[in-house]
Amino acid sequence: MKDDNIVEVRSLIKRYGDVTAVNSITFDIRKGEIFGFLGPNGAGKTSTISTISCRRKPTAGTVVVNGFDVRKNAKQIREFVGIVPQCLALYPSITVVDNLSFFGSVYGLSGGVLKKRIDETLEIVGLSDRANVIVESLSGGMKRRLNLACGLLHNPQLILLDEPTVGVDLQSRNRIFENIRRLNEEYGMTVLYTTHYMEEAENLCQRVAIIDKGEIAALDSPKNLISEMGDGFIEISVSNASEKDLEDLNNLPHVNKSFLLGGKLKVQAGKTHKALLGVLFFLNEKGISLESLQIKEPSLEDVFLKLTGKILRDSCVQEN
């Protein structure tokens, strides 16, 4: 294992009966980075996290965390890994402090150390003034922050965040981002962050793995992934284009690939301004009526589209 890696995953396969959730993926997470797992629901993100956290054993392949194999050294790994599950894994009828006290205790904290860690963690997530409030009376965003806090009590080296912003408002989401950045920058925690929101991965993560149907489609920094997309997209709303038109469109100069999604024609081009004229002539020739046209900067959303042929949000909706 390389010294600067905290997680090394090699050819990991995870099956549930006949269903393959993770299909031979390989990647590393470096110490001190925020590593993103971007993909729709059911892509295999949670299964990968479950394996790294020793909650589930791999069907095949190896997962080594800080030099310990998940198959052989689960107990040691659990000591320095924190997990924040996608659902609100809290006890709603007892107080914030009671929840933290319990989750701290199961990590072996007690007495003054536990109290100190509870105070510190509440300060990190900004819930110090809510310490003695019953959890069910907290707002959704506060519950999310408490959910995060419960995974931080034992000061883990690696924190696994499974879609920590699902269902929260923008303000709470930003607060959670601040918390995560602070944990990474001030406390040196390595973060594995799964999400199906491309903006989150783009803004927060130093490196991102795009995962779909249990396989990693691409892995690099958001900047590098986006740069491979050329300088942008031409997005045209059309009323009567067909799949057959796409083949002809792809053969035009400077056009890399085109997609037809819900009445919108998306044309990815190495140089959009050079491709634009050819595309417009083509549409005119084919008698395709144009309703609107935009030239867009590429994003991780476009990377996902290019790699999988579908929009990330659409696939989330479909799979939900």
């Binding site: 599950p85 989750f103 199961v106 072996g108």
Partner: peptide
């Protein structure tokens, strides 16, 4: 159902 088992089972218990 509420997922607390999932969280606890990731702890050294």
């Amino acid at each position: 159902e509420q997922g607390t088992f999932e969280r606890i089972l990731c702890a050294p218990i």
